[in-house]
């Protein structure tokens, strides 16, 4: 593996290997000494053109726990604000000897362009409305560790699927791993090409093993995708009453950051069936596994 750009590029075997290595990394996270010497001398650059707390911190922790050197670059307060292009920034990183570049960018496809300009590995940490492969991998890891398997599970991805890179990457990866994925939301926000589609969350709940809630991006409220926040919340928000209609074993996921009271109520978010905190913990292990696979060899 040279780059990690799309969850769709991963075969079932490759994805399973990442999850298996992540399990070993998770065991290391449970020890007193959480650091491995594996990537000593390697340099990982976090190149973030969008605000992000958890993803950047997660990648930073993952790289540091593998003993790599980390350089954080955020577009705010950098030469990007002076008008530097992505290509020129890429050359700068190249000149600094970056072995891997973790990129978050508002433009879909930016990581693909970057991969052509630098010699090192490129990890897509979210590009526009396109993909966020490590989020899908950590979600798959979380499902596997809670449910014991992924193959054959019924997964509902609920919300603004159209603009969600998390939804896209998850739909691709979970299908590769044998899950049955249904995309749920208002017709204006659910594309047809990603998998089975439903507009009726209530009908789907009793037949779901995993419910993955997506964050409703506030800016969508003003662009006529949704009639109102209240109507969205009433039809597609996950509250206690809907939680009780799920099968006993079902889990609730959310990639964060949450809008409590909008797509998910605090009662659901803080219930034992919610995996939201585990997802963050697992993110570090999964990103360690990805960095190892990209940088751990010749």
């Amino acid at each position: 593996m040279k780059h990690l750009l799309s969850a769709g590029d991963l075969t079932a075997a490759a994805a399973t290997e990442i999850l298996d290595i992540a399990a070993e990394m998770a065991a290391v996270q449970g020890r007193e000494i959480k650091k491995l010497p594996t990537l000593r001398g390697r340099t990982v650059v976090n190149l973030f053109y969008e605000d992000s707390t958890r993803t950047r911190i997660s990648f930073e922790a993952a790289a540091k726990r593998l003993s790599a050197d980390v350089i954080n670059f955020s577009a705010k307060g950098s030469s990007v604000e002076k008008g530097e292009s992505l290509k020129d920034t890429a050359w700068t990183l190249q000149a600094m000897g970056a072995d891997a570049v973790v990129i978050r960018h508002p433009a879909s496809g930016a990581p693909y362009r970057l991969a052509n300009w630098v010699n090192g590995s490129v990890l897509n940490a979210g590009d526009g409305t396109h993909e966020h492969p490590t989020q899908a991998l950590l979600d798959a890891y979380t499902i596997r560790s809670r449910m014991g398997r992924i193959d054959g599970l019924r997964v509902a991805i609920v919300g603004d699927v159209l603009h969600s890179r998390v939804a896209r990457s998850n739909a691709l990866l979970l299908k590769t791993l044998g899950a049955k994925v249904t995309l749920v939301g208002p017709p204006t926000l659910v594309p047809q090409e990603l998998g089975d589609v439903s507009y009726d969350l209530d009908a789907l709940l009793p037949d779901s093993d995993v419910v993955m809630m997506l964050r409703v991006q506030k800016e969508r409220m003003h662009s006529s995708y949704l009639p109102s926040a209240r109507e969205y919340s009433r039809r597609y928000g996950l509250d206690g009453a809907r939680l009780r209609r799920l099968p006993e074993h079902a889990i609730v996921m959310h990639p964060g950051p949450m809008n409590r009271g909008m797509e998910i109520t605090p009662e659901v978010a803080d219930s034992p069936r919610s995996t939201i905190v585990e997802q963050v913990t697992n993110g570090v292990s999964v990103r360690m596994a990805c960095l190892y696979l990209l940088l751990g060899g010749k």
Binding site: E17, Y292, K298
Partner: peptide
């Protein structure tokens, strides 16, 4: 660094 990525 002398070989392809090894299995863990």
């Amino acid at each position: 660094r002398q070989q392809a990525v090894r299995k863990v």
